[in-house]
Design a protein around this nucleic acid. Structure first.
Lengths: 203, 203
DNA sequence: GTCTATACGGCGATAGAC
DNA sequence: GTCTATCGCCGTATAGAC
């Protein structure tokens, strides 16, 4: 039997939607209260401030969505297979939440302080195991010697950036939402091919 | 003999800096006036509103920086050489203006309407000639048959995204600004290699 | 816990003197 | 063209009744 949402949850959900859609700065607390169907004062009763509410939402959003990614990156899969899995899982995740990239990037741009302080973001870049693997395979001559940081940045870029310029890509190619999704799905094959290709020892 | 900056120019320049640094929404007109060393009222005398000022700045910024890129894309260089030039010119441009990527992306995220309406952004994606070239070379068997949209998105992603996550990359790798610049400069060789590699007919 | 009411400061914008 | 002064509005936050 579905318990009806608590007030706290209603606020949390409404704010999550709005922050993703419009960005934190263009979302007012009055708007959040309205969408949650509650009173403005309750917003401040449950979360001390808008900034506080935002912190909770951001951590939740990133943590929830990065768990599986980290598991893949730290798994004992072989390098090629790991890349394929990672790209696929990442793209699926972003497809379900296409606004996430813009949201995270707006936060990166926003905070001037050392980023890692925001624990949540840090988890998006937990690559120790992956780095080791690339260096190892390079030493063994299985792959071309490769800077792991460059490689990881390549991978992140190819996966995430298209979502950030989604509006532009759709407009310029007259894509419907469905067509954009198809475009993205093709990348699940395309990106790993490209990455693995770049790792092959030069002939 | 250097004519001293007009008031209009002072406002324009101050606002450009602030919009890039802090984003439009987190910049107040009072702040702009203060940095320009002029009075708040003058902001409204020269530009009717903040939104108007922003429009002028955005167009100027994008147009100014995209001209050479478009020239390269529409030049009669061969495909490989064109890719190398494009990547190199683009990276140089962004290196001089590292905040541009975040800025443009925040705008993409901000406006819900059809993006091409914003003439300026559209120019960042003028690829007709380049598209033709990729299809042509594919037909001739000089390169693997390739979806030009996918290829262009790959290229844009590899070039631009690292600037958007600059703070994250720097923090995670303990990079100084100089080290990040070096990291980026390596990409001028790396990215074209990767792209051209992906175009080579399968063995 | 939930509501009404309101204080307060900052915002974008303008009127009007010079 | 440039300034001072001020308007009305909005966003955050709180006090206090229920």
């Amino acid at each position: 039997m579905a318990k009806s949402k608590s007030t706290e949850q209603k606020i949390f959900d409404a704010a999550t939607e709005l922050f993703l859609e419009k960005g934190v700065d263009r979302t007012s607390v009055r708007e959040i209260a309205a969408r949650a169907g509650i009173n403005l004062a309750l917003m401040n009763y449950y979360f001390r401030s808008k900034e506080n509410l935002f912190g909770a939402i951001f951590s939740n959003l990133v943590q929830k969505n990065s768990e599986e990614l980290i598991r893949v990156l730290n798994s004992d899969l072989g390098l090629e297979e790991k890349i394929r899995r990672y790209v696929s899982v990442y793209i699926d995740m972003l497809s379900e939440n296409p606004l996430l990239v813009s949201f995270v990037m707006s936060i990166l741009h926003r905070s001037r302080e050392r980023i890692t302080e925001m624990e949540a973001v840090s988890s998006l870049y937990a690559t120790e195991e992956f780095t080791r693997q690339i260096i190892d395979e390079g030493k063994r001559g299985n792959i071309r010697k490769t800077d792991p940081t460059q490689f990881f940045v390549d991978m992140m870029s190819l996966i995430a950036f298209p979502f950030a310029i989604r509006a532009l890509v759709m407009d310029k190619n007259n894509f419907t939402g469905q067509e954009f999704d198809n475009f993205i799905m093709e990348r699940k094959k395309r990106i790993p091919e490209m990455l693995i290709n770049s790792l092959r020892p030069k002939p």
